[in-house]
Write a protein that binds this DNA or RNA. Structure first.
Length: 417
RNA sequence: GGAAGGAUGGCAGAGCGGACGAUUGCGUUGGUCUUGAAAACCAAUGGGCCUUCACGGGUCCCGGGGGUUCGAAUCCCCCUCCUUCCGCCA
């Protein structure tokens, strides 16, 4: 939800338009909002009179009451009429406001998909290994797409043997790093109510990407971000508690509608995967520092895993509704000769906190909190990159140095005998 | 799955149609007393929105949504959650 009061500000409006919002919509909303204000005054005035009259009835003697009740009825009719007008405009205004995105930050480049700015490049664009990640996964007995398809359908896979050990090593490695940084580890529910999907900003825009359980009115989350956002819904967080940093581990479920034929090899894009996600509740004055912190952690993980990558400041037109700025970290995928997204981090400013009614309480009153999120480890996709970069000429897999404490010291995996 | 009871301010806990935005206790904060502390005593102690230069004023909020009424924390309906009992079960 955007800040309607700031809509008249040139910068605020420009930030929204840069994300591709129709100027007409904004004008409509401004005029609705001014009508809304007038009607609100009218309703409150009518209600004030109604309240006053009603109060008098309570004090009146039994003989006086009938006349007073009749008079009150007239005021009530006025109030009812005013409310009817107000409700119409209020609904219309809210529906429109939900459609508008949070403004892009000034530091975000203009443009759409593929028009982001590369802000850092690390490592070399090395040549492809003998096998791509899909073939190597089959070779090692790590990934079985056919079995997954037979049991659950396309884009489902069995992950077995060493891949499972590496998966849990990745998770433990990330959690250890985040806990050391003061993040609170969380295993959240992965089934949530519809309202939670709305509050977290995924409904109605991304509803088609989400699995639902109609019988119980629940939805499978596509990311732990959703239940993590719910942790402080309606809270007034004392500013001394901030920042609150959470590290959530969960399975993630995505329908991947509209991606038929895209990334069909291996487990690059699957319906179900595990992920360690970072989520921060920040004081509004500090959220840009927290955003840089998220990027720093993501880069540190890629550095320590020894993967070549670049960081992209995503262009305004390619940002989701909720993000004012987003960095993507893209790792070099040798078999494709391209950088592919592995992690990302976004600053939502107060967009999500408004819906969640999550506020920061300080000496100077209260204001909406800022929320940020970033990927620490998307396990399946990380396995894809590792399978290419740590593939040896003899067909074995070498475990990255930093993961070995979490594989029980195992340094190498070979195909099953 | 069946049955019953509940949800009120930071916490506990009254109120069950009209002066209730809410008795009281605890907690918290400030003060008096004290060399200091404790105790005791006094006082203050929710939030959203609108309006005002400000003082202030208005409105909404007693789990959430709807309804009855001139008037709802209080009555009615729906939903959610919690507790207890029975059944079932990793």
């Amino acid at each position: 939800m955007i800040d309607l009061k700031r809509l008249a500000e040139a910068d605020y409006r420009a930030g929204i338009e840069r994300k591709g919002a129709e100027p007409d919509l904004i004008d409509q909303l401004i005029s609705l909002s001014s009508r809304h204000h007038d009607l609100q005054l009218a309703v409150e005035d009518a209600r004030a009179r109604s309240n006053a009259v009603s109060k008098e009835i309570g004090k009146a003697s039994p003989e006086e009451r009938p006349a007073k009740i009749e008079a009150a009825g007239l005021v009530k009719a006025e109030l009812t009429a005013a409310e009817a007008d107000y409700t119409v405009v209020d609904d219309e205004m809210k529906a429109l406001a939900l459609q508008l995105p949070v403004p892009a930050d000034a530091s975000v480049p203009d443009g759409g998909e593929d028009e982001g700015t590369v802000v850092a490049t690390v490592g070399e664009q090395n040549a492809a290994p003998p096998m791509d990640h899909a073939d190597f996964g089959r070779h090692l007995g790590w990934v079985d797409n056919e079995l997954g398809a037979a049991v659950s359908g396309s884009r489902f896979a069995y992950i077995t043997r060493g891949a499972v050990q590496v998966e849990f090593a990745l998770v433990q490695y990330a959690l250890a790093k985040l806990v050391a940084r003061g993040f609170i580890p969380v295993v959240p529910p992965v089934l949530v109510r519809e309202q939670m999907m709305v509050d977290a900003g995924f409904f109605p825009t991304d509803e088609h990407q989400v699995y639902g359980i109609p019988e119980d009115d629940l939805y499978l989350v596509g990311t732990a971000e959703v239940p993590l956002a719910g942790m402080h819904r309606g809270d007034r967080i004392d500013e001394s508690m901030l920042p609150l940093r959470y590290a959530g581990f969960s399975s993630c479920f995505r329908r991947e509608a509209g991606t038929y034929g895209k990334d069909t090899r291996g487990i690059f894009r699957v319906h179900q995967f595990d992920k360690v996600e970072m989520f921060i509740w920040s004081h509004p004055d500090k959220s840009w520092d927290e955003h840089e912190l998220l990027l720093e952690i993501e880069r540190e993980i890629l550095d320590e895993l020894g993967l070549p990558y670049r960081v992209v400041n995503i262009a305004a037109g390619d940002l989701g509704n909720a993000a004012a700025k987003k960095y993507d970290c893209e790792v070099w995928l040798p078999s494709e000769g391209a950088y592919r997204e592995v992690t990302s981090c976004s600053n939502y400013l107060d967009y999500s906190a408004r819906r969640l009614d999550a506020r920061v309480k300080g000496e100077s009153g209260s204001q909406f909190a800022h929320t940020l999120n970033g990927t620490a480890i998307p396990v399946a996709r990380m396995l894809v990159f590792l399978m290419e970069h740590y593939q040896q000429a003899d067909g074995t897999f070498t475990v990255p140095e930093v993961l070995r404490p979490f594989t029980g010291g195992v340094a190498s995996f070979a195909p099953p005998a």
